[in-house]
Computed example of a mutant assay.
Amino acid sequence: MTIKHLFLALGTTLLLAGCNETKQAVTVGADQRGATTTAPPGYAGTDNEPDFSAYKSYSWASQVRDEQNNAYFLNDLLFKTMLRDAVANEMASRGYQYMPSSGDLVVNFRVFEQPAEIKTMDNMGTGYWGSSESYAYDTNRFGEVKLDKGSIIVQLIDRKKGVEVWQGYASGLTDGNVFDKNKDKVYSAVGAIFDKYQYRGDKL
């Protein structure tokens, strides 16, 4: 091997190593109410679990419906629409009927470009929940969630009881140091989140 070829090979190796360092694996997690004794009374099933068989329909939270609010989607309305379509696709594939209002479940979601720790609903951001959405103040929600940069989090709320019953999240959706908005990757990440959700809105 000539000196020229040696330097070329070394340069290629370093370039590949640099690319590998910028790529980050997407990690997925989910939490379901019922694992602790702090769940509100009246829930069906064991360990105070909510009765997921009672949920047949869903509606969007107010900030998701607001076509002018892109604050939680990197100030990009097209990206917000893409993400909403991805979540809607997953809900429909599980037999849930969309209702503009009064759905059994209220669905809310957002992205985080930078690392974040979610301890209370306040950490989701002012305006993430509307003033009439009382579940924003659910004190019996899940424990702390640590999200890496490039994260999507989805939350499902029992409308009647006003409490969060499930949340799923994916982290590491990045292209270098910025959020990766590639449609295929976003749909794949949302699909991976809902792979953690083991329920349906129909009898299939």
Rank of each mutant, 00 (worst) to 15 (best):
G162P: 06
N182T: 09
K183E: 09
V111N: 06
A30V: 14
R110T: 01
F52T: 04
A61L: 07
D195C: 07
M91A: 02
L6I: 15
G103R: 04
D104P: 06
A116S: 09
K183W: 12
F194M: 06
F112S: 03
T126S: 12
D180F: 11
S188M: 12
N20W: 15
A30P: 02
V154W: 04
G11Y: 10
I157T: 01
W60F: 07
A9L: 15
H5K: 15
G125V: 11
K196H: 02
Y199Q: 06
G127R: 02
E144V: 10
G34E: 08
T27W: 08
S102K: 15
R65F: 05
T120W: 10
M91K: 08
Q24V: 15
L83M: 01
L78S: 13
T2K: 04
S57H: 13
Q198A: 13
Y169K: 09
N123A: 11
E49T: 13
Y96G: 00
N70G: 15
P115T: 00
V145K: 08
I153R: 03
A39W: 06
Q167H: 10
E133S: 02
G172K: 01
V165H: 02
G125R: 01
T2I: 10
K183Y: 08
Y135N: 05
R141N: 02
Q63F: 14
G29N: 00
K196G: 03
G11H: 09
Q155I: 14
W60R: 07
E144F: 00
D158F: 04
Y197S: 03
A92P: 02
T120K: 10
Y135S: 00
S132L: 07
D138Q: 05
T38F: 15
I193H: 07
A17L: 13
T139I: 14
Q68G: 02
M91V: 09
Y169F: 14
F112N: 00
I157Q: 01
M121P: 01
R141P: 07
A35Y: 15
D202P: 06
K183M: 04
Q24N: 06
T2D: 08
G168M: 03
S131Q: 06
K146M: 00
F112C: 04
F73K: 04
N70D: 13
R159M: 14
A189S: 05
K146D: 11
A92F: 14
K119V: 15
L156K: 01
V186L: 00
D85I: 12
D104E: 10
T126F: 13
P50N: 00
E67V: 13
S131I: 14
E67S: 10
T36V: 09
N177L: 13
T36A: 05
T174L: 07
Y187E: 02
S57G: 01
D47N: 00
W166G: 04
V64E: 09
D85C: 09
R65I: 10
V26M: 04
N75I: 03
A170Y: 06
R33S: 08
V106H: 01
